[in-house]
Structure formats: C-alpha cells, structure tokens
C-alpha cells in the first residue's frame, strides 16, 4: 500500500522538472505563504498547489494530505482564536474569554499558512524519486555526498517511518489497544508507549543501512559517482519564473 509521501511514477510537467528546480519551487511556494499577510494570496498558493497536483495526476493525494491536516488545523485554530486579545470583540464568552476580529483573522491566516506550506513539500516528494534529491545536490551544487545523503535519507525515512508506525499501530490494535477509538486525545495518549518500538526499529534499520552503505564504498563517493545527469531545460526556467512571480505577488500584497 502506498503512503501519502511515496513517489508516484509519471511523465507530467512536474515529474519532468529538474529535481533541484522542484526543490526550489517547493521552498519558494512555502516562503510565499509566510511573507504575505493576505489570506487570498495564501488561498491562491493552495489553489496553485492543487492545480499542479491535478496536472501531475495526484489531486486525490493532495486532497488526502489536506484532509489529514484538517484535525490539527482545527485544533490550532481554536487555540489561536482564544489567545489573541487585540481587535474589536466579536463574541464575549464567560471567564473573560473573547473572540476578536483580529484573532479570527490571524487564526485563519495561521491555519491557511499551515495547509499551504505543507502541500508543496508533499507534492515535491510525490513527483521526485528520493535518490534524485541528494544526487542533484551533489552533481549541481557540489554539496559533499555525505551531507546530501543525510538529507536524502531523512526524506526517504519519512514514509518508511509512517509505514512502520502504521504497522505498529496495527499490531497493537490486534492485541486490543483501542486505536480505533474516535477520541483524538485518547489516541494520542495511546501512541506514547509506541515510541519505543518505533525508535528500536528505526535504530536497527539505520544501523543496518549504515553498515551496508559503508561496505559498498560510501566514503569513496564523490561528485561524479552518480550515473545520472540532471540537465536544465526550458521548462525548468518557466517553472522558476512562475515560482518567482508567486513570491513577488506575496511580497507585494
């Protein structure tokens, strides 16, 4: 079963972009959400992400990503809305708690930023083979392979850990732990003891991977060790220009 961040093979415009450009585009779109204070620009970034997902044939996955963040967003929205006291009071509640227009606006912006910033990275991982990320950083930016490998491994391990956690939760449900409860807080409390198996399996996996890499000449790898070249094309320039426009709009408005 595919995880939400696993690579989806394809030949769309996004798939064919240079991995370095995809990485830059993801960061530019994330940055655009944070440099603007305009709700509509952030909504526009979300819409742009969904349009890109549609063009890459992964709209369903993008919507699943948004859906998976909804509960957390709702929780953060509620926390934020009660903490901001500035602005005109819209609703006064007992115990001196009130909802203000600024609080509402700031909370909404905060949640929209969270959703808009999570999408580009998820999309980038969905259309880029994880091995391409460290390789392009070594080949095109001259980053030492060891550092690029650490970054690539960290990205590669996100879906692996997610799968491992899903497996652990499945095993615990099968022994009667109520992960199938509808209570979000109860679920979080039940997750804590599971950090031990996740940590143990992660350390075992990393140790095995490190030994295996070292036995295959990890320290001998350099800039020209990879067989793949990552040339830039016109589409990469177009994508970068598009990203720059989005960032400029975010800065201006």
């Amino acid at each position: 079963m595919k995880g939400i961040l696993d690579y989806v093979p394809g030949s769309s415009f996004l798939h064919r972009l240079n991995p370095l450009v995809k990485l830059l585009l993801a960061f530019v779109l994330c940055a655009a959400c944070f440099v603007t204070g305009n709700h509509f620009i952030v909504l526009g970034v979300i819409a742009l992400n969904l349009a890109l997902a549609l063009s890459a044939g992964i709209l369903g996955r993008a919507l699943r990503m948004l859906r998976s963040l909804l509960k957390l967003s709702a929780l953060l929205f509620l926390v934020q809305i009660f903490f901001v006291r500035e602005g005109a009071t819209l609703l006064a509640l007992p115990l001196g708690i009130c909802i203000t227009d600024l609080g509402l606006s700031f909370s909404l912006l905060f949640v929209l930023r969270l959703l808009a910033a999570a999408l580009p990275l998820g999309l980038m991982l969905s259309v880029t083979q994880t091995s391409d990320i460290p390789n392009v950083l070594v080949r095109r930016l001259g980053l030492p392979y060891q550092y690029a490998f650490v970054l690539g491994t960290a990205i590669r391990f996100i879906p692996l850990f997610a799968q491992e956690m899903a497996g652990i939760m499945e095993a615990q449900t099968a022994r009667g732990v109520e992960f199938d409860t509808g209570n979000f807080f109860k679920k979080v409390a039940l997750l804590l003891p599971l950090c031990a198996p996740l940590l143990v399996s992660s350390v075992r996996r990393i140790e095995g991977g490190a030994i295996s890499a070292e036995l295959r000449g990890f320290y001998l790898r350099g800039r020209k060790s990879g067989y793949k070249d990552y040339p830039f094309a016109l589409r990469d320039l177009c994508a970068l220009l598009g990203g720059a426009c989005a960032l400029a709009l975010a800065v201006l408005f």
Binding site: I168, A196, P197
Partner: peptide
C-alpha cells in the same frame, strides 16, 4: 481482539515495554 489473538511476523511491532 479480546477473543482473537494475532501473532505478527515481526515481533518488534508488538513489543513496546522494557
């Protein structure tokens, strides 16, 4: 799960205590 026991192939997914 109260009446159905399930032993997984990988015991490390089940073990969570020290």
């Amino acid at each position: 799960a109260r009446d159905i026991g399930f032993l997984f192939q990988n015991p490390d997914r089940q073990i969570c205590q020290n």
